[in-house]
Write a protein that binds this DNA or RNA. Structure first.
Lengths: 227, 227
DNA sequence: TTAGTATTTATATGTTTGTTTGAAACGGCA
DNA sequence: TGCCGTTTCAAACAAACATATAAATACTAA
């Protein structure tokens, strides 16, 4: 009997793959990721997921244990590598010494986001949108898991920004980081507030490179503006 | 029989109000507004609403016709005055002549948002949070209604910002406005991305005046940074 | 091939959803 | 008072929901 609460099995890919579909569990994750983004967690039923993934309804509970556990699995699958990528860039930047430039610091966050956005095999920009939905809906249990594992992420950036902007007080810096990450997240997620009001906006071209080109100067200007 | 599709009745307040509850319809709107913010549209059941509003389940369909119509009603009740407020400020600023300063332009948007955030009788910051949820969940029909009625809002600000920042091209300006409104909306909505990762952030103090104090310089710096 | 496990399937349970209904209660006006 | 339009009420509806279970199938190791 398939033990429910265990995490997704690491399974050898079949030797002979006649351009076949991925794992059942992976297929579920892929479809769930997209549907959670489109409809939100609570509005996405297991029936929608299993039908589109072309698996049996019970497969979700078999492989993941529950709908909640599926969500956590879908979420962590993308979050962990993204955070690792940012921290790796941060390590590299800090180790190469010299003055810590704000722009370079911003780019240590933006580059992994950009790479993710351009990689369809990792869901492209889907995860950033999922993140922004998760931010708005608040999954308490998920928040706990995240904050337990990744609080170092914010701490590292706080320290780094403090070094790069030593003239700012702690509170002022916290506000600016709050604003900066807010813009960046929403830019990658494609949350265009103005698009509610007008049908087609110039910005609607979703080319990630274009986002970055305009995003970096905006954020850096906000962060470095005189206190 | 209470005609469903008509909008909420404008009803004279009872002459003698012994500190009584508001209208049934208003009570429903107030509770729905809060619950839509907390749980999202689809995850908020009519039973949750009617129980907390202490009205009968059928009252929603009687007064508003459907759950969708209730949402539209809840949304428009706040949006219309907010937009009007912004446009009024914009009119005043433009009529007083002189060079159009970016900071003043930004404040024509921020002041009505701030006023709304500080007015509990209009739901305080609730609506901005509702707006940011609605942005992420996409109600197609609501989007249509909004864009039909309020596309002038974006057009007016586009023209004004073009005057205030004549050195910027149309595309560059669109991007910056996109970022600027994104920060402002999320700031008022209290969407703190970093709060996912760390339990208590310095920014967590939600004083609207504090938000504005730090928000304006950040946004203005981003908007006016050299091209 | 066979034994045993891993996975998939069909089916069932009990709950909750939005909406509808017909009757009861209310409130102003004759 | 008695009437009548407006509002509230309890009950019921089918549809969709998450989850559980046992049988059926696919697969692997011996």
């Amino acid at each position: 009997m398939g033990n429910a609460s265990q995490s997704v099995k690491t399974k050898k890919a079949p030797e002979i793959m006649e351009a076949s579909k991925p794992d059942t569990a992976t297929r579920i994750q892929d479809v769930a990721e997209r549907l959670f983004v489109e409809h939100g967690f609570e509005a996405t039923s297991l029936r929608m997921i299993t039908q589109q993934a072309e698996v049996n309804l019970a497969a979700v509970n078999y492989h993941f244990g529950s709908k909640d556990a599926l969500f956590e699995s879908v979420f962590m699958r993308r979050l962990a590598p993204l955070i690792s990528g940012c921290l790796a860039e941060l390590d590299e930047l800090e180790q190469q010494g010299g003055k810590l430039e704000v722009e370079e610091l911003v780019k240590t966050f933006i580059r992994p986001c950009l790479a993710l956005s351009k990689d369809p095999s990792r869901g492209g920009a889907l995860f950033v949108r999922l993140l922004s939905r998760t931010l708005v809906e608040n999954h308490r249990q998920l928040r706990e898991v995240i904050s337990q594992q990744y609080s170092v992420f914010v701490q590292r950036y706080s320290v780094a920004f403090h070094k790069a902007l030593p003239e700012l007080g702690a509170e002022e810096l916290a506000w600016r980081m709050h604003f900066a990450f807010s813009v960046m997240f929403n830019a990658f997620a494609g949350n265009d507030v103005l698009k509610i009001f007008v049908r087609s906006q110039v910005v609607s071209a979703r080319d990630p490179d274009m986002i970055v080109k305009h995003l970096v100067p905006f954020v850096v200007a906000g962060l470095t503006s005189p206190a």
